[in-house]
């Protein structure tokens, strides 16, 4: 066992460049897949379940999500890395708890958005993708949605960086917009891989659009536009409630929160706390 130095060197720019390249490749894979699917969809739906689109959707989105994870995971500090399992557990446990009390939403991204707000867009994206990958251990049907979940985490982090969590009323707006983008991007997966949705309630909404003659992708996209923005608006609101309820020292232990002044509340968090008051 050698005895390495007690202090750390600064990271080399070459490694950072390689990571950045992987990130861009991952984002390109996801965007390219989405564009390809939207452009080619009309010929596809009656082509049978094994159609090339399902494979392209699956592989393009999965490769993109995996590239993002590979790019981001090694760069995260250990203090952020240990939060990811916590976030995944929160996604599952709080998602179930809230899901049991407020029926029509999934609310399975609370942990992802929490990490994004505390640790930034890259950590958020990795958490989203990992959430789907690890969750697929108990429910393989969530695996194809990894790219969408990564997008939600990334957008939540960007919203936090640009101060949308500084005002309590802006959080649901940011969530609503994130939900629109996330829903639209995930719709091709539901359409081409699953040929529908996994729940009966959402299935009924898709059926309504189908009965009006919409294509499957159009029907599912419209359904996603109904459910997802509301869902994400609620998730962002709940996360805002949570982060403002955290004590100041805990919040400020995250460099991302300090550097970008993600949250208001210089004076012991009282003023910000008051803004969250409608919950009680």
């Amino acid at each position: 066992m050698s005895s390495p130095s007690l202090t750390l060197e600064s990271p080399t720019p070459a490694a950072a460049r390689k990571r950045r390249l992987l990130e861009i490749l991952g984002a390109l894979a996801i965007a390219g897949t989405y564009i390809y699917l939207v452009l080619n969809q009309p010929a596809d739906i009656t082509g049978g379940p094994g159609s090339a689109s399902a494979l392209i959707a699956l592989s393009g989105f999965l490769v993109g999500a995996v590239l993002l994870v590979v790019a981001v995971l090694p760069t995260l500090p250990v203090s952020t890395l240990v939060l990811i399992p916590v976030a995944l557990v929160l996604n599952i446990v709080l998602g179930q708890f809230v899901g049991s009390t407020l029926v029509p939403f999934y609310l399975d991204a609370i942990g992802t958005v929490l990490i994004a707000v505390l640790a930034g867009p890259a950590a958020g994206a990795a958490t989203g993708a990992l959430s789907s990958i690890v969750w697929s251990f108990f429910n393989p049907t969530v695996l194809p949605f990894a790219a969408g979940a990564a997008l939600i985490g990334c957008l939540a982090g960007l919203a936090a960086r640009h101060g949308l969590f500084r005002r309590f009323y802006l959080a649901p707006v940011a969530g609503f917009l994130t939900g629109i983008i996330g829903g639209v991007v995930s719709a091709p997966i539901a359409a081409f891989v699953f040929g529908g949705t996994s729940g009966l309630a959402t299935g009924a909404i898709v059926s309504a659009f189908r009965s009006m003659g919409d294509s499957l992708l159009a029907a599912i996209t419209k359904q996603a536009l109904i459910s997802d923005p509301m869902d994400k608006a609620i998730v962002f609101t709940l996360v805002a409630v949570l982060v403002y309820a955290l004590p100041r020292r805990t919040r400020l232990q995250f460099p991302f929160v300090r550097r970008h002044r993600v949250l208001t509340g210089q004076a012991a968090g009282q003023s910000a706390g008051a803004a969250t008051g409608q919950g009680s």
Partner: peptide
Amino acid sequence: FRRMAAFRWQAVPLVLSLVEEAGTRA
């Protein structure tokens, strides 16, 4: 609203202890 409040009451201690523990674990 009461349920949202209940969510906060239960989620805050949970998240707080998890985040603090994660700090120790890190």
